[in-house]
Design a protein around this nucleic acid. Structure first.
Lengths: 163, 163
DNA sequence: TCGATTGACTTCAAGCGTGAAGTCAAAGAT
DNA sequence: ATCTTTGACTTCACGCTTGAAGTCAATCGA
């Protein structure tokens, strides 16, 4: 069913997409589906980790004392708490991360990088950056990149808004 | 590990991201992770289908005689053949699609919508369009939308390139 | 002081995607 | 005519995400 078809009935009329909107939308959908795989493949092949796993490790590596609260980390990595919890559990098994209650407030859990975890993300960073350049950044000019940042800012939703 | 950190060693020097590049990249990553869920939720809740499932049905509904070759459909929906095969198998079980060898060339499989399948996508279309508008299009101006289409064209990779 | 409430986080069963392995039709070579 | 090669597609085991259900710490009200 084309999203430019006629109103199919509902309380308020459906505002179908015009051609320019459809082009933008189709483009966005293709990015959403095709881009992750292109970022994942080199990371999986060369470092044995997914893009999400890389992002998690990367955010923690940049935090003070290389530790973050799980809720903050979930937000930074754009994932759910349950997804993050499963991922960090796997990292604990690999010896890459450790979890502990936050001394300041027991309701929070801190996730910290181990030495092995830090080494893994340091090794993966160049692979990731190379993939990011090849898949995206090097194919865009400054105007494109500015537009991406602008669009993302306008569309971004904080996980709290999903609750 | 920040993607703006120093070279960690490799054959050719790593071209770390500058601040503008990092902002664009961070924005793109958040789109890739957060957008699908916002499109999925209303479709799952109101129509019992995922975004990918909707896209598959939608493309077939727009094809001549509401039938397409699996390879073409996989391309249009931005998914792999094995993913599509699994999805269409589920659609067959629901009574929404049928598969048959292409009479013109037995190497190809045709996927066709049934009456029930067509009704399902017709019902889902307004839900999808509403979600697309709320999550993305209505938050962007014409310049943003043009930029999205342009960026997607530059980054788009056809599935054949992934082989 | 104590019970109720709220929010952070974990767990795990169910469902889905991936990708290697396999099947099959058509094309090409001999 | 027959065998080999190629490409389309399917299958299925494995691993991952989701989200409901549950646990636990801190806060609030009586």
């Amino acid at each position: 069913m084309s999203t430019t078809a006629n109103d199919q009935g509902r309380d308020e009329p459906v505002r179908w997409l015009d051609p320019a909107e459809k082009e933008a939308w189709t483009g966005l959908v293709s990015l959403v589906y095709l881009l992750p795989e292109r970022l994942e493949a080199p990371l999986q092949r060369e470092c044995g980790m997914s893009l999400f796993e890389y992002l998690v490790l990367s955010h923690v590596s940049e935090a003070p004392e290389r530790r973050l609260r799980m809720s903050e980390l979930a937000f930074l990595a754009n994932g759910s708490l349950s997804r993050l919890s499963n991922v960090v559990k796997r990292f604990e098994r690999r010896g890459w991360m450790e979890r502990s209650p936050d001394p300041a407030d027991g309701r929070y859990t801190l996730a910290a990088l181990t030495g092995d975890g830090y080494a893994a993300v340091v090794a993966a960073a160049p692979v990731h950056v190379r993939a990011v350049r090849e898949a995206a950044l090097d194919r865009l000019d400054a105007e494109d990149r500015a537009a991406l940042a602008r669009v993302a800012e306008k569309l971004r939703v904080r996980p709290v808004d999903l609750a």
